[in-house]
Nucleic acid binder design. Sequence first.
DNA 1: CCGCATTATGGCAAAAATACCGCAAAGGTA
DNA 2: TACCTTTGCGGTATTTTTGCCATAATGCGG
Lengths: 239, 239
Amino acid sequence: MAYRIALVDDDRNILTSVSMVLESEGFQVTTYRDGVDALRGLTAEPPDLAVLDIKMPRMDGIELLQRLREKSGMPVIFLTSKDDEVDELLGLRMGADDYIKKPFSQRLLIERVRSIFRRIEAQKASAASPGTASATSLARGELVLDPAQHLCLWKNAPVNLTVTEFLIIQALAQRPGHVKSRDQLIDAAYGEHIYVDDRTIDSHIKRLRKKFREVDKDFSHIETLYGVGYKYNETNAAA
Amino acid sequence: MAYRIALVDDDRNILTSVSMVLESEGFQVTTYRDGVDALRGLTAEPPDLAVLDIKMPRMDGIELLQRLREKSGMPVIFLTSKDDEVDELLGLRMGADDYIKKPFSQRLLIERVRSIFRRIEAQKASAASPGTASATSLARGELVLDPAQHLCLWKNAPVNLTVTEFLIIQALAQRPGHVKSRDQLIDAAYGEHIYVDDRTIDSHIKRLRKKFREVDKDFSHIETLYGVGYKYNETNAAA
DNA sequence: CCGCATTATGGCAAAAATACCGCAAAGGTA
DNA sequence: TACCTTTGCGGTATTTTTGCCATAATGCGG
């Protein structure tokens, strides 16, 4: 279930480059080249997040946001070129969730976008009634993972995981019995444009094992494959 | 299996310092001092990644990339000195994978480089195992080998192999009944540019036979061809 | 059966990979 | 602001793997 992001900018180059980046991260991107078009599109089919340039012909980003806010509370990130535009944003504080100064790195952009969606997930989690399995949830034998609720159950007992831990166990449980290299797990947990050390994965695996053991002393479903990576087994490791 | 990186910059200091950093991370680095040389070198022997300075005499990085793109899709990272160069990149974005502003920290550079290679590995992995049965998995009679799961079964019993052992049995099982010389097995297990002693293969064969015998006392499918090498037989050796 | 060449195998120390402690930085919250 | 949680990573202990040696065993040609 890919998030949908609307991108509004009058610079076609930025439009294509940014949307490429976002799409490479698995988001579904719709682009608009000016505020008027965008207002129509965004109203007709609201995305999960809007990324707006401030300076645009016909209708600038700020006016666009004000119009949007009449109808919708969708998250918004602004793109700004100048510091005084930032000031303006801060002064007005009219409901933007974040802003990014041009020029910006892919990494920064993705960081901001992901943080927005993390926040949304968190809200969903607290809002959702427990017991309702959402569409994206995962039930692998005794393990239940529901990203929407940020819920992890082991043999029906809740396991309290942090965001990173959740992403890692999710990646592992996606394919029980299959090895994931540390690099693959880094991609799954952080996205492709962020580097963390291999050993950091070890730490998270350690914490995961510990938390599962707190619920089930004999938990040993996360297996180390020496020289390869880790894998999640549905059946407990015997030998 | 070291990744090969080409580094192109007219500043000799940067050339040496950066290549030292990369080499210390285990990468194999080739350097070029201008775009014309680089184009020739990169075309003749394409590396796994190119790191290009933008501002260079004779041919700048942007032109170099365009020329490269005519032939190759190798990943590219740009080095830039000025913000307006960044703008240009963001706008044009003609196939560069990332950019780094000078001056940059060693850590940042490594971060970017590793992220590129993670992506490559990820693609390899997903290409290798799209469904449940990975394309490269092998079922030869009673022997089952699945690299994606790092799984080895003999008569449905799991055999716990190390990476090297796995690579060797894989090479042997690829063509049952066909001899592989020790040199061929070394290539298969270590890559072509690493030297280990012939007798080392004997050791691995020893360990393989032992591990298989632990599961099946009468296992004798790995046959020695005196003076030639080893081969894997589907039917047990009748001798 | 003999002598030479090749292989099998147990053992071992070095190397490689991993587990995990503890801390400090980062981020969020009240 | 101060406080709490999360997180990444340095560093060390531990485990696993691995290459190779020395010796015994086996194969091969005569």
